[in-house]
């Protein structure tokens, strides 16, 4: 299956293990990725706060470039997914958005006719590839590994459409398909505070703390996520959360394709596990 791959800015930097592991597992799952040439930033939540029109235009340039190839877009980053998907939907539903975006695209000699869809990597893995193919690739038995599936907000809300907006299960389904245990995790779709982490740090720490606490109570070995912002909040700030709340969290946060790649027999190094700040070495040692 052929797709246009839109990695997004985070996957070039703080979340490069997500990019690396996605590209590594894609061929095994018969996902043929071709990176969108000269893609630009999707605008994320920050652009939306300053200028909605410009955030639509940023996303629309990517949609227009991708439409030339004709394949649906895979966006692994949840903020990119939301931004691109929202633009796609709003252009269809709101004439004034379509008008503005068309004016802007014309200046650059581009056009967009709304013929492609924006898909989240999680959606593609579960619904296009299917869990049978996931199971067929297993090389390691992850039996006994307790995994909490953390979806975050923007993977499933508001327009998502491929999973429940309140009680998502796609990530849990992957965990089960990998042979690991999916722990009870009611905080799985609660906000980590990502978009206010810069402005109201204290509040974001508290929100992330509550998520880690829920995972710790279930003796979670590893949390997996499909979102770069969730990842950085739960992982890079874990030490700060420990200090602020006198806690002792030591829960590795993996991008879900990292765990998939590991279950498919790839080494921890291949999946860039050593680039994580909270190392999963101990938790994964019995499965190596």
């Amino acid at each position: 299956m052929k797709y246009t791959y839109y990695p997004g800015c985070s996957l070039e930097a703080t979340s490069f293990p997500y990019d690396l592991s996605t590209r590594a597992i894609a061929p095994l799952l018969d996902i043929d990725l071709e990176e969108l040439e000269d893609w630009n930033c999707c605008g994320a939540t920050a652009y939306m706060s300053v200028s909605q029109g410009r955030s639509f235009v940023l996303s629309a340039r990517n949609l227009a470039l991708a439409e030339k190839k004709g394949w649906d877009i895979i966006a692994p980053c949840s903020a990119c997914y939301l931004g691109l998907n929202k633009t796609n939907i709003y252009m269809e539903e709101h004439a004034e958005v379509k008008d503005l975006v068309t004016k802007a695209l014309t200046v650059a000699g581009l056009e967009y006719n709304g013929t492609i869809k924006v898909r989240h990597l999680l959606d593609v893995v579960v619904n296009d590839v299917g869990l049978d193919t996931v199971r067929a690739n297993l090389k390691r038995d992850l039996g006994g590994l307790k995994v909490a599936s953390y979806y975050g907000c923007q993977t499933i809300r508001p327009e998502g459409g491929f999973d429940s907006v309140e009680d998502p299960h796609t990530l849990d389904d992957i965990v089960v398909a990998l042979g690991a245990t999916s722990v009870y995790f009611p905080m799985k779709d609660r906000c980590c505070g990502g978009s206010i982490a810069g402005s109201v740090r204290e509040q974001a720490l508290r929100m992330s703390k509550n998520i880690l606490l829920a995972a710790q109570r279930e003796e979670t070995d590893i949390i997996i996520t499909p979102c770069p912002m969730c990842h950085i909040n739960l992982e890079a700030y874990q030490a700060q959360i420990n200090k602020r709340y006198d806690a002792d969290f030591n829960i590795p946060i993996l991008f879900f394709p990292q765990l998939m790649g590991f279950a498919f027999g790839r080494s921890e190094k291949d999946m860039a596990m050593n680039s994580l700040i909270v190392s999963p070495e101990k938790q994964l040692s019995s499965f190596v």
């Binding site: 909605q52 029109g53 410009r54 235009v57 503005l100 802007a104 200046v107």
Partner: peptide, 15 residues
């Protein structure tokens, strides 16, 4: 492309 938006500035609205 971004400049085109500036020409159509509507505060609460699209822009």
């Amino acid at each position: 492309m971004l400049d085109v938006c500036e020409e159509h500035e509507v505060l609460g609205g699209v822009v």
